[in-house]
């Protein structure tokens, strides 16, 4: 196939993921450019998380094919190029912030010095410099979220797959999260983010609307508003999902 020639960070053709009879992701075609923030939007159960997990290699494909940075997945070697932030906190609460970050750094073969340097930068980045030796279990929910992001960034991956990173995050912190994401983007890295908060999706370069495992629309936020003649993404989504239902009935 056209491996890597396309220059896409993520390229998926006819991606299918079934759990038994249930089809969570249904023939998804997806192209994510290098250096963009791509938002996967949709209600709970739309197939966003499943898509992310398939791209991480956490789930097997039931059909179709997908490439990450030109390499077909699943392939364990690609993992080093991906920073995955799961929906759950997914940190060791009994370890300190430093021990958590060091663990995920060591997995990728980073040296003590590399970990030390990156940790300093990342802690500054997420405003937790004074919390290096605190038990993660003692941190507030928002702080844990930021540490979780830092753990996904420790090995400097060119691609970040963030699953609902802003769920349960207060509005103020959500704003600073988007500042982080824009910073990461400005370093030339790619971010795929899932969310069901339509209002914050406007920060993305491009958006894909997911509904019942299908990608029902895709484009820049402004484009989608123009296409549907709406003034917010929520209404735009409703408009697309309504026409999708109509299409399915015919």
């Amino acid at each position: 196939m056209n491996e890597g020639a396309s220059g896409y960070m993520i390229e998926a053709h006819g991606l299918v993921k079934r759990y038994g009879k249930f089809t969570a992701v249904d023939h998804l075609d997806l192209q994510v450019n290098k250096g963009e923030i791509y938002g996967l939007l949709g209600p709970n159960g739309a197939g966003k998380t499943t898509t992310i997990k398939v791209l991480c290699g956490l789930l097997k494909l039931s059909g179709g094919e997908a490439y990450v940075n030109g390499k077909p997945i699943p392939d364990r070697r690609i993992a080093a190029q991906i920073g995955y932030m799961p929906q759950e906190t997914a940190l060791y609460l009994g370890l300190t912030v430093h021990q958590n970050m060091a663990f995920f750094g060591e997995i990728f073969g980073l040296t003590k010095r590399e970990i030390g340097e990156r940790e300093r930068d990342l802690l500054e980045f997420i405003n937790l410099s004074g919390w290096r030796d605190e038990m993660v279990g003692n941190l507030s929910g928002g702080m844990k979220h930021r540490v979780s992001l830092a753990c996904a960034l420790i090995h400097m991956p060119p691609l970040l797959l963030l699953d609902e990173p802003t769920v349960g995050v207060d509005p103020e912190l959500r704003v600073s999260f988007w500042d982080y994401f824009n910073d990461i983007k400005s370093q030339g890295r790619t971010i795929v983010i899932t969310t069901h908060y339509m209002d914050e999706a406007g920060h993305c370069d491009r958006i894909g609307f997911m509904h019942n495992g299908l990608l029902i629309a895709e484009g820049e936020p402004g484009e989608l508003l123009v296409m549907t003649g709406t003034d917010n993404l929520e209404d735009a989504f409703m408009s697309f999902s309504a026409s999708d239902r109509k299409g399915a009935e015919q």
Binding site: K53, I82, P86, E88, A90, Y92, L93, F104, I107
Partner: peptide, 12 residues
């Protein structure tokens, strides 16, 4: 806690 998934999304 999701740490297992996180580990499996790495090179481990």
């Amino acid at each position: 806690s999701g740490t297992l998934q996180r580990m499996l999304a790495t090179t481990l």
